[in-house]
């Protein structure tokens, strides 16, 4: 295990492209949100595993 101090803020940075909503090609990136499925749980409580305290032998 090691820890190494390094130093230095590195450079002043660059300017980069920031496309906002008006610039984006919404046709190209169009996607549809499917209908929400039925109100089904996606977590099966039966699959819950015991914590260390519960799993420890009595």
């Amino acid at each position: 295990m090691d820890v190494l101090p390094l130093t230095g803020a590195l450079g002043a940075g660059i300017r980069s492209v920031d496309l906002r909503a008006d610039d984006l090609d919404h046709e190209a990136i169009h996607h549809t949100l499917p209908e929400i499925d039925a109100d089904r749980p996606c977590f099966d409580p039966a699959k819950r595993l015991p914590g260390p305290a519960e799993a420890a032998p009595a």
Binding site: L6, A9, L10, G11, G13, R15, S16, V17, D18, D23
Partner: peptide, 17 residues
């Protein structure tokens, strides 16, 4: 279109890889 500034906060070197 606008711009954002991006800085480098950490980069590897000969010491760290």
């Amino acid at each position: 279109m606008s711009a954002v500034e991006i800085r480098r906060a950490f980069t590897g070197d000969e010491l760290t890889g």
